[in-house]
Amino acid sequence: MTSITRAEVEHLARLARLQLDPDELDHYAGQLDVILQSVARVSEVAADDIPPTSHPVPMQNVFREDVARPGLPRAEVAAGAPAWEDDRFRVPRILDEE
């Protein structure tokens, strides 16, 4: 299996929305490499004719009674929000300036 480079860790961190600092990148690059090499053994045994398991109890289309229930208490949800304004979640800007 390929070994994982510092640049790849930086890319992964960006994908995962983690603003890692340079020391962390160095530290994790080594550790992730060791972890991935050890778990790569899974490719030794699993042949093409083995179906994948995504879930221990195979279930499909689970329905429940369509009963109206009260939603979450609004004031308590608001109290847990990092920023709340005009009865809404306030979020940072979502579009670029251009």
Binding site: V42, I50, P52
Partner: peptide, 19 residues
């Protein structure tokens, strides 16, 4: 889960789960 690695890692792991 990233493209290019999915089959080799997550896909294989799911097969091991079956085994």
């Amino acid at each position: 889960l990233s493209s290019g690695y999915y089959d080799a890692y997550y896909g294989q792991a799911q097969k091991v789960r079956t085994l």
